[in-house]
């Protein structure tokens, strides 16, 4: 397992949301502003990395029959830690994400990686896997937020960026974002639950289209190379 391959897997070819299609509840629910998306993505990244490392460390002493219960306890511990830290230091984010922070416990991404990857792999690989899979998740959240916010309210970076007093990042979630076109022109339905389902559906379709296309291209290239080889052999 080389890191570069793990990186492309996490981001593209084995992206948790778009390809493995797990952990979709939170993806659709909280992607209304960039602030929520980045916050949720980073929380999952941190929890996933910590859980991966711990589970990989204890993988040899866990009895097989009760491994799921142990995974859940490890995950719930880290989720509680992150939940309390957010409540203390970024209360705006904790309020905006509400019940979805404790619900990371049942997010299939984390238990899925523990079951599929960390049970067999050494600590280093699991650490990188946590970071890259978490990063892939964050990127999907950011894309969803940007699309829904832009088309829904004509804004970019709500909660995270403030331009009223020069460009600056607001980490307390108060920034109004950059207004790209008047809010009344936006399709505000995209900020509602309907928009969550639709945006994710279209995003998965785009991903499937792109993966299929790159596969066909690879196959065509391989065929071409083979044909040329045969030609050379003939000569």
């Amino acid at each position: 397992m080389n890191p570069k391959k793990q990186f492309t897997e996490g981001l593209i070819t084995n992206n948790p949301v778009l390809v493995q299609q797990i952990g979709m509840c939170a993806t659709m629910a909280i992607t209304t502003t960039l602030f929520n998306g980045v916050g949720m993505g980073l929380s999952v990244l941190i929890i996933l990395t910590c859980c991966n490392v711990v589970i990989s460390l204890i993988r040899k002493i866990i009895p097989g029959e009760i491994r799921l219960a142990i995974f859940v306890v490890v995950i719930a511990t880290f989720v509680t830690i992150v939940d309390l830290l957010l409540q203390a230091y970024v209360p705006a984010l904790s309020e905006a994400l509400g019940v979805f922070i404790p619900l990371i416990v049942v997010n299939c991404i984390i238990i899925g990686r523990a079951e599929a990857f960390c049970q067999k792999m050494p600590v280093g690989a699991c650490f990188l896997d946590g970071i890259f899979q978490g990063f892939g998740y964050t990127v999907v959240l950011i894309i969803m937020c940007v699309v829904r916010e832009l088309l829904g309210a004509g804004r970019f970076g709500g909660g995270l960026i403030d331009v009223s007093n020069g460009f600056r990042f607001t980490l307390d979630g108060t920034g109004a974002g950059i207004q790209i076109f008047p809010e009344s022109y936006g399709a505000s339905i995209l900020s509602l639950p309907f928009g969550g389902f639709l945006t994710l559906g279209v995003l998965i379709a785009v991903m499937q289209y792109a993966l299929k296309k790159s596969e066909l291209k690879k196959a065509a290239l391989a065929e071409q190379a083979k044909a040329e080889e045969e030609k050379e052999e003939d000569e």
């Binding site: 339905i189 309907f194 928009g195 389902f197 639709l198 559906g201 998965i204 379709a205 499937q208 299929k212």
Partner: peptide, 23 residues
Amino acid sequence: YPECFHGFAICLVSAALVALAFM
């Protein structure tokens, strides 16, 4: 429907329409 919508994608799009009705 278009081939690239196969699987979860078309489900999510139809779920979006049901969600619209529930609105």
